[in-house]
């Protein structure tokens, strides 16, 4: 087992995964069309098609996820980082394997979209909310396909690190000591970290649940029906528990992995605090949702919360910082 097997697995993932994500895109586009048709014409036939599309696209998302899981197992099995003897005096291990989580790089948006599809399947009895969600999920799939396709160039950063490691091994380049040290840090504090396996998925599942809160708040604003508040609240509860605990779990991870690095008041952390306090404000305001015009305030807050959620997610790509992929 080695580099060749890893490369073969990566190529195989692209070969079998690309058709799956293409079908997800096509089915999701149909799902979006049927959603819009149902919203306009209120014909149950369109709704039935929409639900069928939702089930198929969710099934495809899960299939793709299993393929990604297989690829991650292959990375673990085939890639062995054996640290040079000189470095072993400074680090506590002789070698490492990469247990990369399934929500890094281009896979995170895929994971979020898959969770959102699964959550959407729990509101199929609410035709109005479901059809609105159908449009959102359709847009989601388009964004995943064109901007965050995990099968097009699987895990480009992990791949770059693995490829560089094996290239240095072959060429006996002295930079191998520096790269080995960097890889040890990346594997220990990032890929294989328990926090990496808990903090991001909790947040992405929370985000998926909060999409339904957003959809219900939009409907509450237009339909002025208390029932939508109940739906919004029931999903906000799941989202808020995961959001709060997930965010808190990030703190000891930051202390352990970043130590003296500059991470406090980093834009992503500021954004997460903003999102959390806004969801806390939403949950407080809804205690008096039946009093006067509070339902309106609550609905607006639910929408603002979701805008802040999207904004916080995008911060990684638009503002520099320790969490970001862009640098000044």
């Amino acid at each position: 087992m080695g580099f060749e097997e890893y490369i073969a697995a990566r190529e195989f993932l692209g070969t079998i995964g690309q058709p799956v994500i293409t079908y997800i895109l096509i089915i999701s586009l149909f799902q979006g069309i049927f959603s819009i048709l149902y919203l306009i014409k209120k014909n149950s036939r369109y709704y039935d098609y929409l639900i069928k599309c939702l089930y198929i696209s969710t099934g495809l998302y899960l299939t793709g996820f299993l393929m990604l899981a297989w690829f991650h197992v292959q990375i673990y099995d085939t890639v062995l980082i054996e640290y040079p003897a000189a470095l072993r005096q400074m680090i506590p291990v002789e070698n490492s394997r990469i247990a990369a989580p399934l929500w890094i790089e281009s896979e995170k948006l895929y994971f979020w979209a898959m969770c959102a599809s699964i959550f959407a399947m729990t509101v199929t009895k609410r035709k109005d909310i479901m059809s609105f969600l159908g449009v959102i999920l359709s847009i989601f799939s388009v964004v995943v396909y064109f901007f965050s396709n995990p099968f097009k160039d699987p895990l480009p950063i992990v791949n770059g690190e693995i490829t560089q490691w094996y290239a240095l091994l072959l060429s006996s380049d002295m930079r191998i000591f520096e790269i080995a040290g960097t890889l040890y840090g990346r594997i220990t504090f990032y890929y294989n970290s328990t926090y990496m396996w808990t903090h991001p998925p909790m947040l992405f599942i929370a985000y998926a649940s909060l999409i339904i809160t957003f959809a219900a708040c939009v409907y509450m604003l237009f339909k002025k029906d208390r029932l939508y508040d109940e739906i919004a609240y029931s999903y906000a509860k799941i989202g808020y528990i995961l959001l709060t605990t997930g965010m808190l779990i990030g703190y000891p991870w930051a202390v352990e992995a970043w130590k003296d690095s500059a991470w406090w008041w980093d834009p992503k952390i500021s954004g997460s605090i903003m999102m959390w306090v806004l969801y806390s404000a939403y949950l407080h305001s809804r205690i008096y949702v039946s009093k006067g015009k509070m339902w309106k305030t609550t609905a607006y807050l639910g929408i603002i919360c979701f805008v802040s959620l999207i904004f916080t997610y995008l911060l990684t790509y638009i503002v520099p910082g320790i969490h970001s992929v862009v640098q000044p």
């Binding site: 500021s270 605090i273 903003m274 306090v277």
Partner: peptide, 25 residues
């Protein structure tokens, strides 16, 4: 609710200010 909203506004200001200050890595 208003206090929580204000903390949200402080955080938003922090993001903008960080972005303004971060002229080099």
């Amino acid at each position: 609710t208003l206090i929580l909203f204000a903390i949200g506004a402080v955080s938003l200001y922090g993001i903008t200010y960080y972005n303004y200050l971060a002229v080099d890595s």
